[in-house]
Design a protein around this nucleic acid. Structure first.
Length: 578
DNA sequence: CCTCCTTTGAAGTGA
DNA sequence: TCACTTCAAAGGAGG
């Protein structure tokens, strides 16, 4: 807490950007019609199917775009680095178009910073918005809600009353006081232990008991993390991100909610966010009786979690989980997980959908599909996730100022070294690596996405969108221009895709190309805008950086990607298969 | 029970 | 600065 002390001050400095960008806009952000968007990661199956189709079509597109220069790609390249979103606020400001309605019902996947709120009618009802099938009302809002403007920021973190946010997010405020900023991260039912929420916070009265009842975990789960205090009842802006699964973005420590850092260092919005989502034990519960234990930061994982075996000294005690042990456990340094990156966020959201559509269940296979779908996403779509990820990192850094990714190094069981090596080499020497290195892998590299699979759609995807990570920068460059955005999607193939992946993609694409009409691709191509039309806001960002992902030089991409896709898909596939 | 697989991205490490 | 490594999620598969 000391570190975070100073309320907004501390965080403000370090994450000033976050605060600023977040707080800038209070007004509701009307849903931005992205009708032009081919991708609409909605939870409905129709949408999912569309994604698949798009992936297919993109496959065709890719082949046509292969000739695209790497330079153009660089422009499109998202700025994954920390500086990727220097001016998120600007980005969204440009992207979003003010419209009259603040509320709208639409695709669960409206524009990125949307605040999803349950149907105004009864959020907590089984069939309500909270339920998987229930209709949801989405409120588009700026991320910034995270950072309430100065006026709001003054709010006392200790008294995170929804009212505090009122002036900033009145409309969006959930009827049930769900803090709009509540979590970037969702919580799983498992972790949530409903207790008795404050009466005033309890929107619903249990029909049976007549007592205000806290939303059932199943109802709240992803969308409505219950906060220990008065806050935290606003739907998680990212709630839509992890809907179906009801899984927390970060696993919750079984042992409870421990948070090493007090949520005091953030600005009002952040503090409320934190208080509601994080470190319950650090934040004074609004109500003593509340389960304030509430919701720990999802990123915090108790040592007893499978991932991180409890330290010798702890193990026994932790297992026991007696109150005392729990306390001890809490005292122990928790395992703070890394914030999820854009792709991880995307995976969490889309996994369920993909799984539902496919017979596949293996995560590895699903991930392959998701990887393709990811590449197939439009810039705007990806931008959403990049921005979310950025916010996640920001929040994470504020919550855990002293945390470093290094802290988790070695937390996981030994990491297979050979495989990594083989991958790396394959990247460097696709052809040579073929076979020999792959053979090193303990397990054979399974072709998870055989062409004939039911889910071949994704498999067939290739990457017309590859490497078109909707960088915020890109988005910034192209202010809310629906048409433009769409066109931007048709970009050069993804050069960043790993050889193996490309090989697989190529394999599937080959099959798919014949089947899928070029019509789709042509359509996309037609809408393709001039690459130069999109200025790079990332002034300081080197083009090279933008272009090449870590460990995959742009040059390599440029020279290998095409050949691989065009001429040697099979060989690579073989490699991966071995 | 534990690790691998598989994806992308962020961040750390070492040269 | 660059290349490489580790971890983040997920859950079936395999040892």
């Amino acid at each position: 807490m000391p570190q975070l002390g100073g309320g907004g001050g501390g965080s403000g400095a370090g994450t000033a950007g976050g605060g600023d960008d977040l707080g800038a806009n209070d007004e509701l952000i009307p849903f931005q019609d992205e009708g032009g968007e081919e991708q609409e990661p909605s939870s409905d199956s129709a949408s999912a199917q569309r994604d698949l189709d798009e992936v297919k079509s993109s496959l065709v597109n890719e082949s046509e775009n292969q000739s695209s220069s790497s330079d153009s790609e660089a422009e499109r390249r998202p700025q994954p680095s920390r500086d990727a979103f220097p001016k998120p606020r600007d980005y969204f400001a440009e992207v979003r178009r003010p419209q009259d309605g603040a509320f709208f019902k639409g695709p669960p996947y409206p524009g990125y910073p949307f605040l999803m709120i349950p149907d105004l009618s009864s959020p907590y009802l089984p069939n309500g918005p909270l339920s998987p099938g229930g209709a949801r009302t989405y409120l588009q809002m700026k991320w910034p809600l995270l950072d309430v403007p100065s006026s709001a920021t003054v709010k006392d973190a200790r008294s995170p009353s929804p009212a505090h946010l009122s002036n900033k997010v009145p409309v969006v405020q959930h009827p049930h006081h769900m803090h709009p900023l509540t979590p970037l991260i969702t919580y799983s039912n498992d972790h949530f232990s409903p207790g008795s929420p404050p009466t005033h916070l309890s929107p619903e009265i249990d029909p049976k008991t007549g007592i205000p009842r806290p939303p059932h975990p199943s109802e709240l789960s992803p969308y409505y993390p219950l906060s220990p205090g008065a806050v935290g009842q606003i739907p998680h802006p990212l709630g839509w991100l992890v809907p179906q699964q009801g899984q927390p973005m970060y696993s919750l420590p079984p042992g409870g909610f421990r948070h090493p850092y007090p949520a005091l260092a953030m600005n009002a919005s952040m503090s409320s966010l934190v208080s509601s989502r994080f470190s319950p034990h650090m934040v004074a519960p609004a109500h003593p009786g509340l389960p304030t234990s509430g919701i720990p930061h999802p990123a915090i994982v108790s040592p007893i979690v499978k991932q991180e075996p409890a330290p010798p000294s702890l193990s026994p005690a932790v297992s026991a989980k007696s109150p005392v042990t729990v306390k001890k456990e809490e005292e122990k340094k928790p395992h703070v997980k890394k914030p999820l990156n854009a792709f991880m966020l995307y995976m969490k959201e889309m996994r369920a959908k993909v799984v539902a559509e496919c017979t596949l269940k293996e995560s590895a296979a699903i991930n392959q599909i998701l990887g393709r779908k990811w590449h197939n996403l439009s810039r705007e779509e990806q931008a959403k996730y990049y921005e979310l990820a950025r916010k996640e990192r920001q929040l994470h850094s504020q919550l855990y100022p002293t945390w470093s990714a290094r802290d988790n190094y070695g937390k996981k069981k030994k990491r297979k070294r050979e495989k990594q090596l083989s991958q790396t080499q394959s990247q460097q020497q696709v052809q040579e690596a073929e076979g020999t290195l792959a053979s090193k892998s303990k397990k054979p590299c399974v072709q998870y996405l055989p062409p004939e699979k039911p889910c071949d759609s994704p498999a067939s995807s290739h990457g017309s969108m590859l490497d078109s990570p909707a960088t915020p920068s890109a988005a910034l460059a192209s202010p809310a221009a629906p048409a433009a955005t769409h066109s931007e999607q048709a970009q050069p193939l993804s050069l960043t895709t790993k050889p193996e992946a490309r090989a697989q993609l190529a394999l599937h694409s080959a099959a798919f190309l014949s089947a899928k009409a070029a019509a789709t691709s042509s359509a996309q191509m037609g809408s393709q805008p001039p690459l130069l039309s999109r200025p790079l806001p990332l002034g300081s960002m080197p083009a090279a950086l933008l272009t090449s992902p870590p460990s995959f030089p742009a040059t390599l991409h440029a020279h290998q990607a095409l050949p691989v896709l065009q001429a040697q898909p099979l060989s690579l596939v073989t490699k991966s298969a071995h």
